[in-house]
Amino acid sequence: MKGMTLIVRTITDFVVAFIVVFGAYIVLYGHLTPGGGFAGGVIIACAFILLMLAQGKEVAFSRFGEKTAHVLDSTGALVFLAIGGVGLTAGFFFKNVFGRGEPFRLLSSGMILPANIAIAFKVVGSLYLVFTALAIFRRRSFRSMIEDELT
């Protein structure tokens, strides 16, 4: 993929950072306002997918490599499991062992915030990987498939 026109490439360069920040906001304030790990994670992943669509695979991979995405994908899930496992030491899986804090402050509501961050890692990694997997396969025309079958 070579990317789109100069106008599109310039604009995406500007907006990608803002989209990532907005996604991070949705993740971090997931326990106070609408949103959360999944919604914010989708927004962050979309920023990199936009980059890939506008500027091509090479630019996107230089900013956010495939291996990084694999690591994020697995660590997100592992951190989420670890939070559940910490609860098990208090008697029940996913029991809240962190302080609840003052309501409506960023550091409040116990383990919901770390759980949201873990989910966001997982969602960013896996959604980006799904898109790259689809982008790797070049589209083949129906005619060439038929010709392959015949030969």
């Binding site: 690591v71 697995s74 899986f93």
Partner: peptide, 19 residues
Amino acid sequence: PLYVAIPLLAAFLIPLLGM
């Protein structure tokens, strides 16, 4: 819950360490 947690832990740790 460990019946679910242990295989999930292995399932995510294996590809991560597998790199």
